[in-house]
Amino acid sequence: MAVIESIHLTKIYDEGPVKVRAVNDVSLKIEEGEFAAIVGPSGSGKTTLLNIIGGLDHPTSGKVLINGNDISELSENQLIDFRLHNIGFIFQAYNLIPVLTARENVSFVMLLQKRPKAEREKRTEELLKEVGLLDRINNRPSELSGGQQQRVAVARALASRPKFVLADEPTANLDSKSTANLLDIMARLNHEENMTFIFSTHDSRVIERARRVITLEDGHIVSDVQQTPHT
């Protein structure tokens, strides 16, 4: 069974006399352990598609099935709970909680899940070690570089043991070295933990590392290809 399945997904933004069809009849399946990139020019519908898959936005029509469950029918409060237990998010602008340390940021999601303290502490340290930030565990975001903040964001996304991770242009604000470093970490986690990653990006460095590239144009899927990633 596919981890994510979208069926004839359409999203229309009704802005006065103009109706914008951001996502237009998109059907796709993402299997467990995929490392997929959704690419396309600005305005092609990448972010809208990711928002709907992530349960942040409702489709105008069509369905999103996560592990066979239709999330389009969930209420806003149910969706919040669903996201907490099923989806890891990585944002373009990192979006860490500025008043918390790296440790607290990673641990926070597990706290929302009401995980025991010992488990939270163990997993937080494991994840920060994975992303190479164990020595910065007590630093606040303002004391970390952009690349380091995004690595904390990756650790946070994985902390809840999600079924998949959605990353919206995760390298947009990073330099080449940080981008390469971040992609190495995510590729390793994908390989070692079989974690499913879906990116929206138009960064060629990310596209090169993806094993599947889905191209959107004007809300349509215009190509969906498997490829051998560059290492």
């Binding site: 806003e76 919040i80 500025p98 999601v109 929302l112 899940q113």
Partner: peptide
């Protein structure tokens, strides 16, 4: 606003 949106996105409930 952005931070609160992020908190809701990662699963922080409205009552919280």
């Amino acid at each position: 606003v952005r931070e609160l949106g992020m908190l809701m996105a990662i699963g922080m409930s409205k009552p919280r």
